[in-house]
Structure formats: C-alpha cells, structure tokens
Design a protein around this nucleic acid. Structure first.
Lengths: 170, 170
DNA sequence: TCTCTCCATGTGATTTTATAACAATACGGA
DNA sequence: TCCGTATTGTTATAAAATCACATGGAGAGA
C-alpha cells in the first residue's frame, strides 16, 4: 500500500499489531462483512455509516471525531459535529469500531464478530493503537463478589510501541 | 452513549466497593499516608494538592475536574480550570488518584501504595465507581509478542452496580 | 399505491472538558 | 541570603461532545 504523507504526530502507516500488513483488500472485505451483519440484524448501513467505517479502515489508526468529520465533509456529507458523532456511535454500538477513551479517538475493530472484551495497546509517543484479544477475564471474581453485573469491558494499556522503543533506546 | 444529567443521578452516598463503609477516619488516614509518601519521595504536598485529595476522599466517588474546581474555589483557592487540572494531575501521576477515562472524572485511589494496574467497575446508571485490584496480567503475552512495552494499564468495566441492578430488576 | 410513522440526516448553537501562555510568588539548596 | 526552579493564579482559547429542531427518506400496513 502507498504510504500517505504524514502530519506532525501521525502514527506509522500501518500500526495494527505494529506489524506490516497489506490491507488493500481488507477494507472492502470488512465493509462487506459489516453490510452482511447489518442486514442480518435489521440495521441500516447507510452511506454516512459505511463511509465512516471505510475511513477508519483506510486510516488504520485511531481517528478523532473531528478528523472523521473533516473526511466526511470532504466526501460530501454534513459538516457539523453530530454527523461524525452519530456515525461513530453507530459503529461502536454495533461492534464495528471501538472508542479509545484515552485518546478520545475511534478505531475500526480488528476482530469483528469476535466476542467483545477488547484490549488495546496505545503508544504514548506516536499514538498508534493495536487491538488484542483479551481472552482472560481479569475482573470476573471481583465483580461477582461485589454483585456488579459487567456488561462491557475495555482494557487500555499505555506504553511504547516497538518503533518508538527503538527510537528511545538509541 | 447516553449521558444522564449528573444531578438527577448522583451515586449513593458510599459507592466504593458498593458496600457500606465508614470513612470518617479514612480521610485523615489516607491524607496522612500521602503526606508520608510525598516526604519520602521529595514531593511537595502543597495545600491545593492536599485539599484536592481530601475532597476526593470526602466525596468518595468520581468527580469531574470542574466539580473539583468548584470545591477548591469554595476552599479559597484559585477559580480557573488549571488549578483543578494541575492538582489532579499531581495526584494521578503519583498514584493518589486515578482518572476514569470513561467518565472524564477522577477518584481517590482505593489501594494506595499497591502496585498499580487498577481495574474499575463503573455503573452506567448511577456512575458509581469501584476500584478492584487487577492482579492478573491479561495483556502481558500479547504485548511481549508484539514488542510493546507496557508502562501503565487501566481496565474499565461498565455495567450495573448492585443497587441499580435491584432497581432494574423490580 | 398511498400514507403514516419512525428513524436518520443536516444545521446552528451551546455545553463540557482540557490546555496554552505568562506573570507573580513561594520553596529549598548553594 | 541569593538563585534557580517549581508552583500558583489568571486570561484566553482550543478541543470534544451534546442539545434542539427542522427536513427528508425508508419501510410497514391499509
């Protein structure tokens, strides 16, 4: 894939898993998958929502709501914040994307369809984000004994990605 | 996400651990402990910082920065946002408090001194927050194999606290 | 097909959360 | 005591998110 020009603090082109990855095809594949799931669940995969997902997949990094808004405007959609927030809310609600609370930013889900207790590794230096499968249930016992009913769990680990670790070490 | 208005939705008086707990004494105890730690580490436990910690301990819930600002102003400190943000940053940096990203709010640490990989249970209904010890290292393997160097980890579980579960069930 | 209803979209305005920048002051070590 | 640095207070502004309301389009049922 062609590496797009990078602005000030933009992560390396392909930070998912911090490894090289060809996603020429995965955009259309993931979009298709979302479309299928929406059809199955009776959800409306409207143009803005589709475009928003495509943008997230394209960028392949955590995108702020206002960055999303810019791109949606460029694509001919409305130019006010709710446009972006609504599309993103839809994607997050239905598991096509995640919000990285730490960054106030959104990223396409890297494991669509999988049971969702996502875990993220966030580089404090370049802001790249990797999504891991968080299989083990760290909090189950504590929750049970407290009588707390867990509905959703997000784990955000902050640190240094491989690339920035190298830079820091040298 | 639905964000209910704060006022109509104030957590029960004593939400830490979702259980009754007498903290008449624990405020002064925790403050004292912080003072000791600061002395040991050569940190300046100034009046604003002390007051901010006392407020968090007093409230015993997650407090927004601007709520904190109100209380600090009432206590005779400056009235501009940086006053609150700086005090909170100090407390968070040194482990006396945590930021709940999900709520953009801050809460006194419930396990001061303990090794810090805090885990929170956040009630989506009343916004009460409980802090658990997150002992197990859920992400270690994934991080190691990715070459990611974890520095800090926060786990935020959203759901229903015991009180709100009851209400919902009835 | 028509129409009714619901959901989605577009827009303007506002609220909430967070930082930048800089002057004045207090602290602690030489 | 003097000096450098951290801390505080303040003004101003940026960034993130929501409210409120008008308009439009898709799909269900008559």
């Amino acid at each position: 894939m062609t590496r797009l020009p990078r602005a000030e603090n933009t992560p390396p082109a392909d930070p998912v898993g911090f490894e090289t990855h060809d996603h020429r095809t995965c955009i259309s594949a993931a979009t298709k998958a979302a479309e299928t799931q929406c059809k199955a669940e009776g959800l409306r995969f409207t143009p803005v929502r589709r475009k928003a997902l495509e943008i997230l997949l394209q960028e392949h990094r955590a995108l702020g709501a206002y960055e999303m808004l810019d791109r949606l405007r460029d694509a001919g959609f409305g130019s006010q914040p709710p446009v972006a927030y609504r599309a993103l809310e839809f994607l997050v609600t239905h598991g096509f994307a995640h919000k990285i609370e730490r960054l106030n930013a959104f990223i396409a889900c890297a494991h669509p369809g999988a049971s969702h207790a996502p875990a993220f590794m966030i580089c404090r230096e370049c802001h790249s984000v990797a999504e891991a499968q968080s299989t083990r249930d760290t909090l189950g016992d504590a929750a049970r004994s407290a009588g707390f009913r867990i509905e959703r769990t997000v784990l955000e680990a902050e640190g240094l990605c491989p690339a920035c670790t190298e830079t820091a070490d040298t």
